[in-house]
Design a protein around this nucleic acid. Structure first.
Lengths: 336, 336
DNA sequence: GCAGTCTATTACATCGTTGTAAAGAGGTCC
DNA sequence: GGACCTCTTTACAACGATGTAATAGACTGC
């Protein structure tokens, strides 16, 4: 089965190039030779070697997607959409997991499978503008996530600050007066966390509320367990919160579980809002209010931007920063 | 930056092969040339072209993983583990989503990016033994999932029948007398669904319970919404169930949400058990009892089996079928 | 001084494909 | 009959890397 053009050519009694012409649908091939060649192809079960093609053409038809971890629903859903978006353009996607670790993110910057990948979609957690600026690899790259990163790189994301501000205001409008935040980060650059925190503070200000540092809790990895633990801490405060803005849905779901366990009614005593719109949240009880980024738009926009860069062939004169939409989805966890 | 060995060789004033020798750490290179070459490499920012290497060596260092959809936590978690397992062996993973559609699964069988992929991990939904037998592509392939498929292909999975039987018995032991099943499938071969259904019937028999066809509901895609709808149907029966075995956790979580909405206490009035052990289930309220397949074992075993086939280079004389472990995790949704 | 051994480096072919240029076959036109 | 087309097919080089075999040089030992 490991047949190549040469084998087919020998069997059909034609030159290698003629077989190649048949395979690629070149027009000036006589009907008889075409048939003969096709028969040989079928007999040998010939399949073109994508590696050789790629070496010849300089294009592999493969994109890389580097995310922290597929176990987090947001990244899994995003990956799913990216894979589909790439497929509509004839591209396949290679996945890299960084765990948000700086060393592994640097590997991504250095270049994954050099020349085997036409372009890179990268959702960094630990790296900042400085590292991005130092990048020398010429493979086109588009960042997913933080709109705020004023780096030299193309970028697609939503306006995190505005969305977080809106989420916070939503809780305030619902009547909350002590609004906590779960998810600030000191690790890495924590660009996402920082922006959502900034939005949170603006939202508080909008509502004329004071920032109480005791209500701001960290969560280095945005996992459920951290949300649970943070909520437990909040509930033990002398003056616990009546609303919580979690920087992603996993944190919110962890917090929700904690509230259930302690018998705290949601939303009556504590209202809750998350971020990401993981499908999971809409099936929780109570269903989870959240900020729903337009993930499909992010995926298709990012893929198209990346492909346009690949087609252009030259490094961008200046980075493009595209913004996708989002919506505040009010569900039961923040109902009045 | 698109430099190659030739450019480096020219700059260093040596032959192409010498540069290659330096890059590959060949021993018989004098210290002075090595230095000179290394300097040239650094100056040009040379990176080996993985495509060319791959053409030369016949190995790409890339595995393909074909799953129905990453949006389903089970496949996302599995993909995450597969990517990590592959990475420990220096391999990268390319992801293909089939949506469980027959035509797209056939594409996978036909070969993805022929020769650009060293091996394929495939979790088929629609295809059966007949199609697998017709496969002609020689790329090593390992199936993930259904242990029962008596096809010609290597395989890693858990004993679905036994696990499902145990789950059903678990509900019976808890006192349930009318145990429903959600998740039978008529689409495709539905091997997973069929096996879990078989286990369900055996479990009923073990407990001396009769099978009531009204309690067996379909779910073509194993999604939350289907679980919700099926549960709604069950609750409208004149004689509704007191226990439900859902063929995966998403169905169970959908069912759970439905029960909450109708005010049915879980597990007091209806007990619930799922399958897959999605992390989500352990944070639901009540937390979800489930069958927990050893996903890490499945991923590492499958990757290692696949790599051994790749190393061997020849098609297997006869397929290997490896079985990973699982555990029944009893949580609140089936507490006494 | 010369065979023999070892090191360092090189030219060349090759992996499978396709672009380029050119050659052969057949026909038309004046 | 020769110039000039068009259509079909071909040989060759190239993409970037590495294995093979060969070369040149340095050193050993007698």
């Amino acid at each position: 089965m490991g047949s190549n053009l040469k084998d087919v050519a020998a069997l059909a009694g034609v030159s290698v190039k003629t077989v190649s012409n048949v395979v690629n649908g070149y027009v000036h091939v006589s009907a008889t030779t075409r048939e003969r060649v096709q028969a040989a192809i079928d007999e040998l079960g010939y399949r073109p070697n994508a590696t050789a093609r790629s070496l010849r053409s300089g294009r592999s038809g493969v994109l890389a997607l580097a995310v922290p971890e597929l176990g987090v629903p947001y990244f899994a859903e995003l990956a799913s959409l990216v894979v589909d978006a790439a497929a509509t353009h004839g591209y396949t996607v290679l996945i890299d997991q960084t765990a948000g670790a700086k060393d592994r993110e640097l590997v991504v910057l250095g270049g994954i499978r050099h020349h085997l990948v036409d372009g890179v979609l990268f959702s960094p957690l630990a790296l900042g503008v400085a590292e991005l600026r130092r990048r020398t690899d010429a493979t086109p790259m588009v960042l997913l996530g933080e709109r705020g990163l004023r780096g030299p790189t193309d970028h697609v994301g939503i306006d995190n600050i505005r969305a977080a501000r809106q989420a916070t205001r939503h809780l305030a409008e619902r009547g909350c007066r002590r609004i906590a935040a779960i998810g600030v980060q000191s690790v890495g650059t924590g660009a996402t966390a920082r922006q959502r925190y900034a939005g949170y503070r603006k939202g508080l200000a909008d509502a004329g509320l004071e920032l109480d540092p005791a209500l701001v809790l960290p969560a280095p990895r945005f996992h459920r367990a951290e949300g649970y633990a943070a909520m437990a801490t909040l509930l033990e405060l002398p003056d616990p919160p009546d609303g919580v803005f979690c920087f992603n849905d996993l944190l919110a779901l962890g917090a929700l579980r904690c509230l259930h366990t302690r018998g705290v009614p949601v939303p009556e005593q504590v209202a809750l809002i998350g971020f990401d719109d993981a499908e999971e949240g809409s099936y929780a009880t109570p269903s989870l209010s959240t900020i729903a980024p337009d993930k499909a738009a992010i995926a298709t926009t990012a893929v198209e931007l990346l492909l346009s860069r690949i087609r252009a062939g030259e490094p961008p004169d200046r980075p493009r920063r595209l913004t996708a939409g989002y919506a505040l989805v009010a569900r039961e966890s923040s109902a009045r």
